[in-house]
């Protein structure tokens, strides 16, 4: 079996290396918070989910043999904790958020069809962003918009885009963590990125 890059982190963790644990907590805090916020809709509850995730990791660490990568294992635990928490909270959440339409796996167009002419060519083509200064694209306000666009996505799209583009998982790892096919993974990712792109387009224009 080939060595994974985080094999040595796992060994160090099991040996009680606090610096490695602290580095993991810091590295994954952003992605774990984004994932959790989608389930609980409240920052402080999301922090509870992140905390419970790490405590669960510590409780199960001795039994974890490294069959999946350490990162996959941690995010799998986070998903479980977040989903359990959501079920507990379900009775207090408004109906709208429980039964929000989720077309994550549909093949409906991700670009407004009116933007294409009768032959399927662009009628209103997208702007060239190469002249938009990087400082504007990465401004705090832009990032806030992107963050809230992701928080508003249907759950199945949100999970995929957070794991792929925030946590930096590859396609195969995301399919494994979420137990979905590679095709579903790509469809959800495409819909999610297209939705965020649209928000950016309206803002950067």
């Amino acid at each position: 079996m080939s060595r994974r890059p985080d094999d040595s982190d796992l060994a160090a963790l099991k040996a009680g290396d606090e610096a490695v644990f602290q580095a993991l907590v810091q590295r994954y805090h952003g992605p774990l918070m984004r994932l959790a916020v989608g389930y609980v809709r409240d920052r402080s509850a999301a922090e509870d989910v992140v905390q419970e995730t790490w405590l669960t990791c510590l409780r199960s660490l001795d039994r974890f043999e490294g069959r999946s990568s350490l990162k996959t294992w941690i995010f799998g635990i986070a998903l479980n904790v977040a989903r359990t928490r959501r079920r507990k909270d379900a009775r207090v959440l408004p109906f709208a958020s429980l039964f929000r339409r989720d077309d994550s796996d549909s093949s409906a167009p991700t670009v407004d069809p009116r933007r294409f002419g009768s032959e399927g060519k662009w009628r209103t083509p997208p702007d060239d962003w190469s002249n938009v200064p990087e400082s504007h694209v990465l401004s705090r306000e832009t990032l806030d918009r992107v963050r809230s666009a992701i928080d508003r996505l249907p759950p199945r799209q949100r999970e995929v885009i957070i794991l792929r583009d925030v946590a930096g998982f590859d396609a195969q790892a995301v399919s494994a963590v979420l137990a979905i096919t590679p095709e579903n993974q790509r469809v959800r990712l495409h819909r999610a990125r297209a939705a965020v792109r649209k928000v950016l387009e309206e803002y950067l224009r």
Partner: peptide, 16 residues
């Protein structure tokens, strides 16, 4: 290019 740029902006959310 917009999709690539979108992906890289999303990646910035990791730092928290």
């Amino acid at each position: 290019e917009q999709l690539r740029r979108t992906r890289s902006v999303i990646g910035r959310l990791a730092a928290e």
